[in-house]
């Protein structure tokens, strides 16, 4: 369509506040993504109150609390990492970031053990019993071995919601590792800390979602 005659470098457009504003909007989309899950949870909880409470009792509150505190601590180290970088202490920022990554990994490991235990008790797979893959399951009479439907819903939601949350943790961890490398290289530095700041915001959002997941699954039994 055209013949090119000139190439122009676009002058780098710096608007940290604007970028942060955009990132916050992105965080709202994440929030709404989880909101759909929470809405489903709320509806089915109101339909199957007793089953939800019974099912919730099989979750280990101790592990849940432990994980909550781990995640809160990781948020704290994230804040400190950013503060350190802003104060010009890049090495300290990296140390705090290491803490955050370690805590995030710890969360995942604990979560993994918890999931594993659930698998061992067939709380997940039991829902599949008698439902051969590929067949319509609609006409199936819930067999005697199956949990009551309300509990099936509870565990289905539990695995999908915590699974999605864990996926966000993994994304956050990958991002933090990238940020860590960039700090080492110096492309993220005390004068240009926007990326670390946004990574932090993302991490806090993951924390924020857990703050609501925790009581809804572990506490209100």
């Amino acid at each position: 369509m055209t013949e090119q005659t000139a190439t122009v470098e676009i002058p780098h457009h710096h608007d940290e506040t604007g970028t942060r504003l955009g990132f916050w909007l992105f965080l709202y989309t994440e929030l709404f993504l989880f909101a759909a899950f929470f809405l489903i949870y709320a509806v089915y909880r109101s339909n199957y109150l007793v089953e939800f409470r019974t099912a919730a009792e099989s979750l280990n509150t101790g592990i849940g609390t432990q994980n909550t505190i781990i995640l809160l601590a990781s948020s704290l180290t994230m804040v400190l990492s950013l503060n350190a970088l802003k104060a010009g202490k890049a090495r300290m920022a990296k140390t705090f970031l290491q803490f955050t990554i370690t805590l995030g990994l710890a969360f995942l490991v604990i979560k993994g053990f918890e999931w594993g235990a659930k698998f061992d008790h067939h709380l997940f797979l039991q829902t599949t019993k008698g439902i051969a893959a590929g067949e319509g399951s609609l006409l199936l009479n819930p067999s005697a071995e199956m949990l009551p439907v309300g509990q099936v819903l509870f565990f289905g939601l539990y695995f999908i919601m915590t699974g999605t949350h864990a996926l966000h943790i993994v994304i956050g961890l990958i991002w933090m590792i990238i940020v860590y490398v960039w700090i080492s290289k110096g492309s993220i530095n005390p004068d240009n800390y926007g990326t670390l700041e946004r990574c932090g915001l993302y991490w806090h959002l993951v924390d924020l979602i857990w703050i609501f997941l925790f009581p809804l699954y572990y506490l209100v039994a």
Binding site: S75, L76, M78, V79, G200, L201, H204, L205, D207, L208, I211, F212, F214, P215, L216, L219, V220
Partner: peptide, 18 residues
């Protein structure tokens, strides 16, 4: 109660950490 406490926690994270 659980959600009220969670909301307070969320507000703290939003205000100070974020």
């Amino acid at each position: 109660i659980a959600l009220a406490v969670a909301s307070i926690k969320a507000a703290l994270v939003l205000t100070y950490f974020m």
